[in-house]
């Protein structure tokens, strides 16, 4: 029996889609743009953002550096379904990818025709992220260390 994929909350969609290559995202967005009227609420653009973090020693906020950002905000419309909005802001410099993600976001949020395909991409993205997580955790679990003071334990190869 195959496990059914439950669509996660909207706040996680971008992360899952972003785990995939841009090509399938853009292909689906192009298809949806042919189906619905797409209006740019804000011009899709790319640029930079200065990233503030709080230092964990004294609690000062400072800028560690800049990150690339791309953002898009669209409104989709058609005669039968009305209107829906979608948006994306991602750490990337490809405004076209942000706009494609905003279109997917709008369609899936409204549950319009095309939402199934967008959901399938979410599922593929979730699988890609699971694999990434597995690889990172392997780096940790293979190197977990239990230091002992000399004379308080046997040879460490016995662990």
């Amino acid at each position: 029996m195959t496990k059914t994929f439950e669509i996660p909350p909207r706040g996680q969609w971008l992360r899952l889609w972003s785990a995939l290559p841009a090509a399938p995202i853009k292909a689906l967005a192009d298809e949806l743009a042919g189906r619905y009227q797409v209006e740019d609420m804000a011009l899709a653009q790319s640029g930079l953002g200065l990233m503030p973090v709080t230092d964990s020693a004294l609690g000062d906020t400072y800028f560690i550096g800049e990150i690339p950002l791309a953002s898009a905000h669209v409104r989709l419309a058609n005669a039968e379904s009305g209107q829906t909005e979608g948006a994306a802001t991602l750490v990337d410099d490809r405004a076209g990818v942000a706009r494609a993600l905003a279109i997917l976001d709008a369609v899936l949020a409204a549950g319009w025709s095309g939402a199934d395909a967008a959901s399938q991409l979410l599922e593929r993205g979730a699988a890609a992220l699971d694999e990434q997580t597995r690889q990172r955790r392997a780096l940790l679990s293979a190197t977990r260390v239990d230091f002992a003071l000399l004379g308080t334990a046997g040879e460490d190869d016995d662990e």
Binding site: R10, S18, I67, A87
Partner: peptide, 16 residues
């Protein structure tokens, strides 16, 4: 990197 979603205002992960 957590940023507000332009439509919902909810924090979303924009990348890492």
């Amino acid at each position: 990197v957590m940023l507000p979603h332009p439509v919902t205002g909810e924090p979303i992960e924009a990348g890492e």
